[in-house]
């Protein structure tokens, strides 16, 4: 879509870098995998568009796979399709190459997976963030609403504080989503419920960027929300979110990161991050593959550590420790069922 030359030049540069790194570490990686134990479980992972190097979703999955290779001795493979139409070819080829477990991180493979999986009953397939029914398909769902509830609660506590950063003390927080879809609103509803749980008067301003790759638009929306007195802004908008964090930094208020630990992007201006542990999920799947028995749906929430808040490395000491204690308490209440968070995708 964009200017092809730039993209290709970038690809050349990245590849050279990757290959150089691979050259440096190739001796080590080839040594690690030949600790043969007879029948190693073979696991393949298909990345979603963007591929490895996104510092988020795909890289996190890859971490889980590496762990499976190190700790379980699994034979692992990561493949990066060029576009979504290649899903069918990759799923077929991987199944034919005798992989025990084929994980796809791309939601767009939903439709083809339903057609291909029955043709390879000896292979187990797994897909994330959606439910695909089939005897040999595992669907992995995250309880993003639970993590978002904690983020909302923390935001509602912190927004009343006037002592840190440039906060105004008013009970206004905000949310920037990628698109208005059930998948994104799952985060929003959890966030709102968390905020209202602390103080029903908390106002949540909502904006959508309609793009997951437009940081400047993210920043624009953020600045206008800050104009309207918001001082904690939760972003669920992919790369657009970088602009949200940048906007929060400019005005010295707080952003909340998503998916991976984004606290380091603007030290002291990212209050916390709602992490989705794709790595935990991939590792759990790998363990299931080794045992040879799979569940048809795996749900990962706060309880399973599949969703959690970041350790708040840069902000922990800035805010009132009572707030953190309160959030911990709420977390326990969610885990033991005292608090129930609405999942809009299940309505």
């Amino acid at each position: 879509m964009a200017i092809p030359f730039n993209k290709r030049v970038f690809a050349v540069m990245t590849l050279i870098l990757v290959l150089l790194l691979a050259a440096c570490s190739s001796s080590e990686s080839s040594g690690g995998s030949d600790s043969s134990s007879g029948e190693k479980v073979k696991i393949a992972m298909i990345t979603s568009e963007g591929g490895l190097g996104d510092r988020s979703y795909n890289d996190s999955g890859n971490e889980g796979l590496k762990k499976a290779s190190d700790e379980l001795g699994a034979e692992v493979k990561v493949v990066e399709p060029q576009d979504v139409s290649e899903g069918e070819k990759y799923l077929t080829q991987l199944a034919q190459s005798g992989f025990d477990l084929v994980i796809t991180l791309d939601l767009g493979h939903e439709k083809v997976l339903k057609e291909i999986a029955p043709q390879y009953p000896d292979t187990q397939f797994a897909i994330f963030n959606t439910v695909v029914e089939g005897d040999n398909i595992t669907s992995v769902l995250f309880h993003e609403h639970e993590g978002s509830f904690l983020a909302g609660a923390l935001a509602a506590l912190v927004t009343q504080d006037e002592s840190v950063n440039n906060l105004n003390g008013e009970k206004v927080i905000s949310f920037v989503g990628g698109v208005d879809s059930p998948g994104i609103n799952k985060f929003l509803v959890g966030y709102e419920e968390g905020a209202k749980h602390i103080d029903p008067e908390t106002k949540v301003i909502v904006g959508y960027s309609n793009s997951f790759s437009d940081p400047s638009k993210g920043k624009e929306i953020t600045l206008s929300q800050i104009e309207q007195k918001a001082d904690v802004i939760y972003q669920v908008a992919g790369a657009t979110g970088e602009g949200v964090i940048d906007g929060a930094k400019t005005k010295d208020v707080f952003a909340i990161g998503v998916d991976s630990d984004q606290d380091y992007i603007a030290e002291g201006n990212v209050l916390t991050s709602v992490m989705k542990r794709v790595d935990v999920a991939v590792f759990e799947l790998s363990k299931a593959a080794q045992g040879g028995s799979y569940e048809s749906i795996i749900e990962l929430g706060l309880k399973e550590n599949g969703v959690q808040l970041s350790e708040m490395k840069f902000t922990k000491d800035m805010i009132n420790p009572d707030h953190i204690a309160k959030v911990e308490e709420i977390k326990e209440q969610i885990i033991n069922g005292e608090i129930e968070v609405t999942d809009v995708t299940k309505q």
Binding site: R8, V9, A11, V12, T14, L15, V18, L19, G51, V79, E80, P81, Q82
Partner: peptide
């Protein structure tokens, strides 16, 4: 060999 090599060859 990483798939990106194909992009590199096309770029070249």
């Amino acid at each position: 060999v990483p798939r990106s090599l194909i992009d590199v060859i096309q770029g070249l």
